[in-house]
Nucleic acid binder design. Structure first.
Lengths: 231, 231
DNA sequence: TCTAGATATTGTATTTTTGACAATAAATAA
DNA sequence: TTATTTATTGTCAAAAATACAATATCTAGA
């Protein structure tokens, strides 16, 4: 064990695939690219790239995401690692999935060297993808759903200023279950939100109040009172 | 992207490290080996091995575990993947942690080709380990603690026939909090357990009833009623 | 200006779950 | 038989979840 036979064992490649989630029109969307090179030319896929031999995984994930979205300071979460020997037609490529949550309205996606086309697709309308990307996507979405219920990451999907209804709709969507408005508000009462004193604009009915997440206060009560986000 | 430059990128190695948990004397224990080869000769470590170039990860994890413990049919859970470029002194070795839960009483550990020595160590008494194994161990134990609370895997750590107190002690240990006996029993009421009609032997007080987990019924109510294990 | 329509927001009453603690039961050991 | 120890069940109040009702606030159009 651990005696490395350089001839036999140094024959892998290692990649990272990024599942980028957004929330749009009441649906969770995933960023898809249309591949501009072989293999799987012109197939839809999730963005990914090989890791450099001396590159840390988290660093690589950040690099790939930045190259793609021009956004930085995003929370990247490691998901599952996939290593079926036949998952890549050109060799043994083990890949680790990372996911990121972004506010769709905050950036313009555009095709790049990465891809011929880039687009958002609702998670339930994803077509057949290249490689084992459907598998990766589904397993990562399952992880997202779990994490949404016990980590305060929903605020990375929602707009900076959001209504309580928008927040509720996100949870109704991922849990595939309707919730009572009044009871939802009771449930989130311990979560530190800042009432901004502003209201929704351009709606043709009573506008809802806007809130933002108080992440500093969250850290505070998490540390002092042991409070954990829970929905 | 995905254009593979075989010269630059095929220079990795890939390994799996197994964190093997058991429950003994009211404590969660981890299986440790004393390395019989370089690097880190004579250091304590968690068992791991390189993945063959054409070997699936899950298969490799199972193989390594079987080589080590002579047990099969164990539940292996993938944990985090570690890829710090400097984590291995002899080259770039990315590793994925898997963990397994075993009933300590069910098998005899013995040193093998793997190691000079093998022993169980309480999770809170683990010494400094080879490589980044302390990091791997801690992160995997955190994952175990989470999974214990929402998946019925405590029964893989407990004896086949267990008392409700043994079960409670496991949760008290990992949560580092005492629980009320009566309330614990209310909490686990929805979990399908089989009352065996047998009792503890050789105790010098009133013996407790023995139970076993009804995994078939669990699958049934999980599917039909959407019930999820929860503690 | 008034009113209908739509959604936001708050309140109330009931049921369910949790938590603290008391009471009882069943074994052993002397 | 009794003291001791642990297992097991029961009770009651507090807290949380649930269902549903009531009220508030905005827009749009008469």
């Amino acid at each position: 064990m651990y005696k490395i036979d350089f001839n036999n064992f140094f024959s892998y490649s290692f990649s990272i695939d990024c599942v980028i989630f957004g929330f749009k029109d009441g649906q969770v969307n995933v960023l898809m690219i249309k591949r501009s090179m072989k293999p799987y030319l012109n197939h839809w896929a999730i963005p990914g790239d090989l890791v450099y031999p001396d590159e840390d995984l988290q660093v690589a994930a950040t690099r790939i995401l930045t190259e793609l979205t021009n956004l930085s300071n995003l929370d990247l979460h490691q998901a599952q690692t996939f290593g079926d020997p036949n998952r890549h037609p050109q060799g043994r490529v083990i890949t680790t999935a990372y996911f990121a949550l972004i506010r769709i309205a905050d950036f313009e996606i555009e095709a790049s060297s990465f891809a011929e086309e880039v687009k958002w697709v609702p998670i339930h309308e994803v077509p057949d993808l290249a490689f084992d990307h459907n598998l990766i996507l589904n397993s990562t979405y399952e992880l997202l759903k779990k994490k949404l219920s016990y980590e305060p990451i929903c605020f990375d999907l929602l707009p900076e200023k959001f209504t309580l209804n928008q927040m509720q709709q996100l949870f109704e969507y991922v849990n595939e279950a309707e919730m009572d408005k009044a009871n939802f508000r009771k449930k989130i009462r311990p979560i530190p939100l800042i009432a901004l004193g502003e209201k929704q604009q351009n709606v043709k009915h009573r506008p809802a109040k806007l809130f933002s997440f108080d992440s500093e206060k969250y850290s505070e009560i998490a540390e002092e009172d042991g409070y954990r986000f829970k929905i």
